[in-house]
Design a protein around this nucleic acid. Structure first.
Lengths: 119, 119
DNA sequence: CTGTATCCGCTAAGATACTG
DNA sequence: CAGTATCTTAGCGGATACAG
């Protein structure tokens, strides 16, 4: 596999970022990896996200085929979000991101504070 | 390893996003993975990025210890950016992102156009 | 409970000009 | 060549109110 450079159009990296980029999607995907999640479960687990952003990001994940939305005809209404087969193919990537944070975050913090003391 | 949920503070995913998040950093890292890169080489390879963003993102990558900046005392000046050992630990993650795009992007496009025709 | 709709501040990001 | 400095702008994302 040639080590090519990603510039702009038709670049795999841009493609992936258009799907999992932004502040929330990786979190949402990571969470839904465990199993079906309801709307307000997301909100409880992620106090930082606004309702609007949650709706918006979920819809985009559904549109891109990573997450499935299932609505139950009940009162009160219930909606569950779950991983699609395509979404599951992202699991190793998500796990890689998560694990890198666990393993190497302290080194980043060291680097940062080292820079602070220099400047 | 427990499958925990990432909420907000001291979450590995947030940590990683704070380091490689944004529109450009993954591209920059992917490029510099091949070997030392000079400032204007980045610009040529990534026509979309502005000078300001390039400077800013590179500085953050340096600050976070992923990229090293080496300045040569020459005229005209030369500066090379390269991966640090810490940066290299990100290689599998970067590769995972890149490869997922290569393998699965067409499926995302299919999902998107399927949604378009429905709506 | 699961969303829509509207308003709005803030900051990420582009354009341009200038410097060592 | 490798950046700074300054100004401007688009849109991300939050707050709030309302709806099925």
């Amino acid at each position: 596999m040639p080590t090519r450079t990603c510039a702009e159009s038709s670049c795999p990296i841009s493609d992936v970022l258009s799907v999992i980029g932004g502040r929330w999607k990786v979190h949402l995907l990571w969470y839904v990896l465990e199993g079906p999640v309801r709307f307000n479960q997301f909100r409880r687990k992620m106090p930082g996200i606004s309702q609007k952003m949650l709706t918006q990001q979920l819809r985009e994940l559904v549109r891109d085929g990573l997450v499935a939305r299932k609505q139950f005809p009940e009162i009160p209404p219930r909606v569950e979000y779950s991983m699609t087969p395509l979404g599951r193919t992202l699991e190793p990537t998500l796990r890689s991101i998560h694990d890198w944070g666990n393993k190497h975050w302290s080194e980043v913090e060291e680097a940062r504070s080292a820079m602070m003391s220099k400047a």
